[in-house]
Write a protein that binds this DNA or RNA. Structure first.
Lengths: 139, 139
DNA sequence: GCAAGCGCTTTAAATTGTCAAGCGGTGTAA
DNA sequence: TTACACCGCTTGACAATTTAAAGCGCTTGC
């Protein structure tokens, strides 16, 4: 069962340390909620490298399927972390280009923190091979 | 930004080029894979606040159900990010206590980055309310 | 005795993510 | 002219993950 904690969970005071949130809005909690959606961090990371088209992004992210990607991009767009622009190349080819908004770009700090941590603590301990693969970029 | 970024990204992924073999192995990619599992960041955040028992942790995390929590804890344990200790309080009550290992504790940097970002960009501009709630602890 | 807390496990649904395929359009090569 | 190959997606069926709900064995406190 779900222990206690109705939707209103969080720090029932008991949680020792610091302040408790007031009206129940906690930015960090929310941020984690967004960032832990599958592929979100990968998408941000890929876009930190520069704006990209749909398929291009899909390739860069590596392994995300189009349906999920579409959905994620929509979500990130409503959150204003990424922006979508339809560029009209010369004649008629309409290409969609996704890029980070300023807010999204600031997630770079998060990615960097992860990168730093990963390099130090995830080197080769595998133990669990989840079939992930390379990536290529460096931060 | 600093991302060097050889676009030659992750595996062919969806594609089929079974490159198999030993793919690049990219720590960051892997790290993201772990951190984006639901509840993982919440768990780490809760534990940064000090070691906790199972139910206690569940309450601190807020909203994760026991089955998932058990599974996540197992995974994190095999990854050596958290440790489990069964403490034998005086007489007979066996209580399990979970705490971060040194490697896990260093995720603090990641949490902090998220926290910082969240406070700055997620204040309450949300257009979407996902019914999340408070959190309580500070980083 | 009995409710309540502890650390979990089990079972069946609901939610999410994925595969595979396809649609309308364009650029390129045969 | 007819293929393909690539673009940006969408759809529908299916698998994986997460969830609620309940329960088990055990201990503590009233």
């Amino acid at each position: 069962m779900t222990l206690a904690a109705p939707p209103q969970v969080a720090a029932p005071s008991g949680a020792a340390s610091s302040a408790s949130s007031q009206p129940g809005f906690c930015p960090v909690y929310r941020a984690i909620g967004v960032l832990q959606e599958k592929w979100v961090l990968h998408i941000v990371r890929a876009l930190l490298d520069g704006e990209k088209g749909f398929n291009e992004l899909a390739r860069a992210v590596g392994g995300c399927n189009s349906a999920t990607l579409t959905q994620r991009l929509e979500h990130l767009e409503t959150l204003q972390l990424i922006g979508k622009r339809t560029e009209d190349t010369h004649g008629k080819l309409a290409r969609s280009v996704y890029s980070l908004t300023p807010a999204g770009r600031e997630l770079q700090g998060v990615i960097q923190a992860i990168d730093m941590w990963a390099r130090e603590h995830l080197q080769e301990d595998e133990a669990r091979l989840e079939g992930q693969s390379g990536c290529g970029s460096a931060v």
